[in-house]
């Protein structure tokens, strides 16, 4: 009986020591993960700053005009249209419209010009 008690006592002691050891080990692991998180957060913040700077309207406008040779639309070049779901889609005349890009007439029939951009 005494021997059993001693064995149980020693086992409990070992279990306690093992638990303490695991807690410390987990602590170190958590700290390593925290450091990794900080590094990743710094990387994310850096990328965020970079994306914001790259999407600045001034930079986009400069790239559009200098690299892509784009320019703002001249007065009258932009026409706003409004969808007209009440107007039925016209039947397509396949022979007449064989060279027409797909869907072009459909758009003309269904949309109404509502205004012209300056």
């Amino acid at each position: 009986m005494k021997a059993v008690a001693v064995i149980v006592g020693v086992a409990l002691l070992l279990l306690y020591v093992w638990e303490r050891n695991e807690i410390v080990r987990a602590g170190y692991h958590i700290e390593r993960l925290k450091e990794k998180k900080v590094v990743l957060q710094r990387e994310r913040d850096g990328l965020r700053v970079k994306v914001s700077a790259l999407t600045a309207p001034e930079r986009i406008a400069r790239a559009a005009s200098e690299k892509l040779e784009m320019m703002p639309p001249r007065p009258g070049q932009v026409v706003l249209v409004r969808a007209r779901p009440d107007i039925p889609v016209q039947a397509e005349d396949k022979d007449k419209d064989k060279d027409r890009p797909a869907g072009a007439e459909l758009r003309l029939a269904k949309y109404d010009a509502v205004g012209k951009m300056p």
Binding site: P72, P75, V78, V79, L80, K96, D97, D99, R100, A104, E105, L108, A113, V114, G115, K116, M117, P118
Partner: peptide
């Protein structure tokens, strides 16, 4: 400023529009 900001805000003019309809 108005010429650029109005279209950006989706404000359209009420001026009459002539649409050149495409023919195929």
């Amino acid at each position: 400023i108005a010429e650029q900001a109005l279209p950006y805000l989706g404000v359209s003019s009420r001026a009459p529009v002539r649409l050149a309809m495409a023919s195929y």
